[in-house]
């Protein structure tokens, strides 16, 4: 424990700004991953333990596309779409076979996919750490906020994640297709009886959820090292976020992701060894007080 260091960081605005920006990018990445997880759970009722593997796939696809084309835009698109496509294939050929089975079966197939993906990445990209490096587009001087400096890419990441989150929220709450998807979450038989292809919709929702993981992966690629096990650590944290925010709630995922981001960024200074303990402690408290999460709705089924 080093609470003095934490207090002195909070009192200097330069250190505080740096830590706040760190908290925001951790939070935004978690928000992207967790909102995909939450969307898939909310509509399909499946807990996608393999979500971290799609995050990793997005990051590696972005990395290789950037190496080949040195265009960050292409890398970003390829990472997002690639992960989405992998998600659709996974949904159609594997996870749809265990819909309605007990949760252990779902857990097991996802675990299998994690093992396979980690080894495939080792075979294709090698076991060593990979660095993508900052794209040229963002080779700008850092922006100054209240005496602290924030890299331009961080600002882009935060804005992009918030925009994508807002688009997702609008699509689900305000459009016709969003209304159908919400209906699908509550009463799939009725939606099917109205002549809507539910199988296609399930695959599409799973694809969008995986795409969000891929987006997080490709956004993270310039700032993080890529390793074969990178999916697992973010998976555990995004579960904490989903549970705290409430399964199926996008706004809840945003709030919880920011909470975890700030805990991580400031905990790293004040109590580095106990950050995990605090995060899991918060998760336990939420589960005890309100098991459905801060903004989760009780499942209607």
């Amino acid at each position: 424990m080093n609470l003095e260091a934490l207090a002195s960081c909070l009192s200097s605005s330069a250190c505080a700004v740096t830590q706040i920006s760190t908290a925001l990018i951790i939070g935004m990445l978690l928000f992207m991953v967790a909102s995909g997880l939450s969307l898939i759970f909310g509509v399909l009722g499946v807990i996608n333990f393999a979500h971290g593997a799609f995050y990793m796939a997005g990051a590696y696809i972005a990395f290789f596309t950037y190496q080949a084309t040195s265009s960050f835009l292409l890398a970003f698109l390829a990472g997002a779409l690639g992960a989405g496509l992998i998600g659709v294939i996974f949904e159609r050929f594997i996870i749809s076979k265990v819909y309605g089975k007990d949760i252990l079966m779902q857990l097991l197939v996802c675990y299998a996919i994690i093992l396979i993906f980690d080894d495939l990445v080792k075979i294709i990209a090698g076991p060593e750490y990979k660095m993508m490096g900052m794209p040229d587009v963002f080779a700008l001087p850092p922006l100054e906020f209240a005496g602290g400096f924030v890299p331009a890419y961080y600002v882009f990441m935060i804005v992009a994640s918030l925009l994508i989150g807002a688009m997702l929220w609008l699509a689900i709450e305000k459009t016709r297709i969003g209304k159908i998807i919400r209906a699908l979450a509550i009463n799939p038989q009725m939606v099917g009886a109205l002549g809507i292809n539910t199988t296609l919709l399930y695959a599409a929702v799973f694809g969008v959820g995986s795409m969000l993981a891929g987006i997080a992966g490709s956004l993270a690629a310039p700032t993080r090292t890529l390793t074969p096990g990178m999916g697992l650590s973010i998976l555990i944290e995004s579960f904490i976020v989903t549970v705290i925010g409430g399964m199926g709630s996008i706004v809840g995922a945003l709030i919880a992701a920011l909470l975890i981001g700030f805990t991580r960024a400031f905990g790293a200074i004040g109590f580095p060894l106990f950050v995990d303990g605090i995060m899991f402690g918060m998760m336990a408290v939420v589960l005890i007080v309100k098991p459905s999460g801060l903004l989760g709705r009780e499942i209607a089924r």
Partner: peptide
Amino acid sequence: GLVLGIVILAIV
């Protein structure tokens, strides 16, 4: 991991 994963998928 690759082999184990395929074995699990086959079993499940």
